[in-house]
Design a protein around this nucleic acid. Structure first.
Length: 107
DNA sequence: GCAATGACTGGTA
DNA sequence: TTACCAGCCATTG
C-alpha cells in the first residue's frame, strides 16, 4: 500500500476523482471502480482509499456485497441514513442492486 | 528478491 | 443467512 505521507500518484488521482463524482444515495464497489478505470484491481482501489480516502465521500465505496469498509461501519451507516441510500432491511447492508452507480456515463 | 499484507471477489458448503 | 477458500496484485519490510 502507498505511504500516507507520500503524494498520490496518477492512479490514486483517478480513483479519488471518480469517487467524488458518485452522487449522494448511490455507491460503487471497489471492483466497479477498478473495472471503470481499466487498470489495477479491487485491492489497489482499497489501498488508495485507505491512504487518501479521507478527503472524498469514502462511504460511497464499499464491497461488492454491500458491506462498508472494515473499521468504518458505524460512520458509514450514519451517512447512508442521511443520504437515503437503498438498504436491505434483513442484513442492514446497502442494496447493491438499486444503489450501484454505473459511472459518470450513466448521468 | 521474497514472503507477508490488505478498506477485494466470486464460488462453494 | 454466515463461513471458508483460492485467486488476485501493488505495496512493504
Amino acid at each position: 500500500m502507498p505511504r500516507p505521507d507520500a503524494h498520490p500518484g496518477e492512479y490514486a488521482e483517478r480513483v479519488l476523482d471518480l469517487v467524488e463524482r458518485i452522487p449522494p444515495g448511490r455507491v460503487m464497489s471497489y471492483g466497479d471502480i477498478a473495472e471503470y478505470l481499466g487498470e489495477g484491481g479491487p485491492r489497489q482501489v482499497g489501498a488508495v482509499m485507505s491512504a487518501w480516502g479521507d478527503g472524498v465521500p469514502w462511504w460511497r465505496v464499499l464491497r461488492s456485497d454491500g458491506t462498508p469498509p472494515s473499521g468504518h461501519e458505524v460512520r458509514a451507516r450514519r451517512h447512508y441514513a442521511a443520504e437515503a441510500t437503498p438498504m436491505r432491511a434483513a442484513t442492514g447492508r446497502v442494496d447493491m442492486r438499486r444503489a450501484r452507480w454505473a459511472g459518470p456515463d450513466s448521468d
